[in-house]
């Protein structure tokens, strides 16, 4: 049984205009009583989100840039705590975000497979039989025993993808990870994702590729300024979304979306 439930979830970021304030500035501001150049801003990224996902569901999330899609995914993963509301999870989650981040530059490719694998919940016993297939799939060849700081960005993407998809998750969260590597690799990657998606019990994916979401998901959430605008069968919601993006009301930003669909 795998499920994800959000009840009236809000997420507010409190950010400074210039990143973090040094302690020095805080002290000076207190002493002089002036506000300083770096005011605190509240950014309401998710508002009143309620949704329930269960075994077997294939959820797609659409929305324009900055609608809160990736934020929602990271909140589902537990990386961002909700500012209000309740998040309930049943099952082991794995998130595929930022595939190229989080490599230890001094470690070899093989070392990094271990670090990432252990972080995703593997053990030495469970990782060992998968090791060679991860190495093969990444197509890194002899470089696998070289520190990853000498890798090209393409190699990093392939390695990251290969590790992240080698595990068997119950709940799979994917953020735009369908375009790793060159064309040949992409075809392989698509096959691998299909395999993985067959095994995962619950999938939530974010993509700008409308055609892909239409193929892979059965239910779609349309996010707009941090709110759920529509939640329903994939076909209906995507049709509405494409219509909206092509309409003058959206500022004509949807030309590309129309073509993709």
């Amino acid at each position: 049984m795998a499920s994800l439930t959000l009840e009236n979830v809000d997420l507010t970021f409190r950010v400074r205009r210039n990143r973090r304030t040094p302690l020095k500035d805080v002290v000076v501001q207190r002493l002089t009583g002036r506000g300083g150049q770096n005011p605190l801003m509240e950014v309401h990224s998710l508002r009143n989100i309620s949704a329930h996902f269960e075994d077997g569901a294939r959820i797609g999330i659409v929305g324009h840039n900055g609608a809160g899609k990736s934020t929602l995914l990271k909140m589902l993963a537990g990386v961002y705590p909700p500012s209000a509301g309740v998040r309930t999870v049943e099952g082991r989650i794995s998130g595929l975000f930022d595939l190229t981040l989080g490599f230890e530059p001094h470690g070899t490719g093989r070392d990094n497979i271990r670090y990432r694998g252990y972080l995703l919940g593997e053990t030495p016993q469970s990782l060992k039989p998968k090791m060679e297939s991860i190495v093969d799939f990444a197509e890194i060849g002899d470089f696998i025993d070289t520190p990853v700081r000498y890798y090209s960005s393409g190699m990093l993407v392939r390695l990251g993808f290969s590790i992240a998809t080698a595990i068997d998750p119950e709940i799979l969260l994917m953020d735009e990870c369908f375009s790793a590597g060159d064309r040949a690799f992409q075809r392989k990657a698509a096959d691998r994702l299909n395999e993985m998606m067959k095994k995962a019990r619950l999938i939530v994916m974010v993509s700008h590729d409308i055609g892909l979401l239409q193929r892979l998901s059965d239910r779609v959430l349309w996010l707009d300024h941090g709110r759920i605008r529509r939640d329903g069968p994939a076909k209906d919601v995507i049709a509405e979304y494409v219509d909206f993006m092509n309409s003058p009301a959206s500022g004509g930003a949807g030309a590309a979306v129309g073509k993709a669909a």
Binding site: K74, V79, D98, L101, L119
Partner: peptide, 9 residues
């Protein structure tokens, strides 16, 4: 940072 942005360990 890169780890804690991906997994809530």
């Amino acid at each position: 940072e890169a780890y804690l942005r991906q997994v809530p360990a």
